[in-house]
Design a protein around this nucleic acid. Structure first.
Length: 239
DNA sequence: AATCATAACAACCGCAAGGAT
DNA sequence: GATCCTTGCGGTTGTTATGAT
């Protein structure tokens, strides 16, 4: 039994949104709020699939979007966060109020990549392009998906088939920040779009710790402490 | 003015995670 | 525990705008 399609493709519009569609979507969400994207199109009288509605709202119609050009400071923030988080656009977007993951991803690909290249920096590794490869230790915030994958990775290392950098390539650890806990962090920061809710400080699911917790209404943890008033991201010292 | 190349960005697609049953 | 459904993410594509020739 196959997976059912996300929508009935024969009766859905595709491509650019019209003003009328935008208005309908805005009006519906204003009246009923976000959520249940699958049933929203029908309820709102839109011939679109739920996914499309969600994307349009999140990337374009949301009232809190900043729009407009990125400032020089935002550029540097994106570069900094990308060096820490890699292509985790949603995590980066979460730290740039008013910006969406799609917007940042596009901006990265069209502007920042070139900007870094012109500075002689590899946009993937954030290292000087001409710098010879160094022996570095890498870690990843993305855990292996399954025990089996972990075992396979372990097997590859043991058998000399691969090295850790190939298996866990997501994050270069040439930085000097670390979570305050003493024990190794084993829980993933995020699993498939869901933010892990284990506190880095006290390691409890529903902690009362306020050190790393964001004050924003959407929850989440301010690992880099930007929301908590440490606005000078330059203090996140990196090599 | 016409044509082509490139940039910018909106939108789509496939996939995976987690919840519900 | 297995299966299905919904949502969200990241990569990619398509379309439009802009600049160069």
């Amino acid at each position: 039994m196959g997976r059912s399609p996300c929508c009935e493709k024969a009766h859905t519009n595709k491509g650019a949104w019209t003003k009328e569609e935008d208005d309908r979507l805005i009006a519906y969400i204003r009246a009923h709020g976000e959520g249940c994207w699958r049933s929203l199109p029908k309820a709102a009288g839109l011939l679109r699939c739920g996914k499309s509605c969600r994307l349009r709202w999140i990337n374009y119609l949301r009232p809190d979007l900043k729009r407009g050009n990125f400032s020089e400071e935002e550029d540097e923030l994106i570069i900094k966060f990308h060096s820490l988080l890699g292509n985790k656009w949603s995590l980066i977007a979460g730290r740039l109020p008013g910006r969406t993951d799609n917007e940042i991803k596009n901006y990265w690909n069209t502007h920042i990549r070139r900007k870094l290249l012109s500075r002689g920096i590899d946009p993937t590794t954030h290292r000087p392009i001409n710098e010879p490869a160094q022996e570095t230790t890498t870690i990843s915030f993305v855990a292996a998906n399954t025990v089996k994958e972990e075992e396979e990775a372990e097997h590859k290392i043991t058998a000399g088939i691969s090295n850790k950098e190939e298996i866990i390539p997501d994050l270069n650890l040439e930085l000097r920040i670390s979570p305050p806990c003493q024990q190794p962090q084993t829980e993933p920061l995020k699993t498939g779009g869901r933010i892990c809710t284990v506190c880095f400080t006290c390691r409890e699911n529903q902690c009362s710790c306020v050190i790393n917790r964001s004050s924003s209404s959407n929850g989440g943890y301010d690992l880099l402490r930007l929301k908590a008033g440490v606005s000078d991201y330059r203090s996140l010292e990196m090599k």
